[in-house]
């Protein structure tokens, strides 16, 4: 089961949940599972940044997630 962590500013979309374990094999599947759990969260999660096992992604839709993966949702980073 992948460990999925939400920062505080996403807690209002997750009923306050900070972290949970999810059985999924891709980011797309993860988002769909979370959308079922918290309807409306998909658009939030796909417009934020995500780190999967230490790698930062601006758009991770088809990225693979392993059973022991760590997934962190982060604020999208821009630059100067």
């Amino acid at each position: 089961m992948a460990r999925v962590v939400f920062p505080d500013h996403l807690h209002r979309f997750t009923d306050g949940t900070h972290e949970l374990e999810v059985d999924c094999s891709s980011f797309r599947q993860l988002v769909r599972i979370l959308e079922e759990k918290w309807p409306g969260i998909e658009s939030v999660l796909t417009s934020t940044m995500v780190a999967i096992d230490g790698q930062l992604f601006q758009d991770a839709w088809f990225e693979k997630i392993a059973p022991d993966s760590e997934v962190f949702f982060l604020q999208r980073i821009e630059g100067g």
Partner: peptide
């Protein structure tokens, strides 16, 4: 360093 968990979550490559 490599492997340190960054304060914002992920492990540094």
């Amino acid at each position: 360093k490599e492997g340190t968990i960054a304060p914002y979550g992920p492990k540094f490559p």
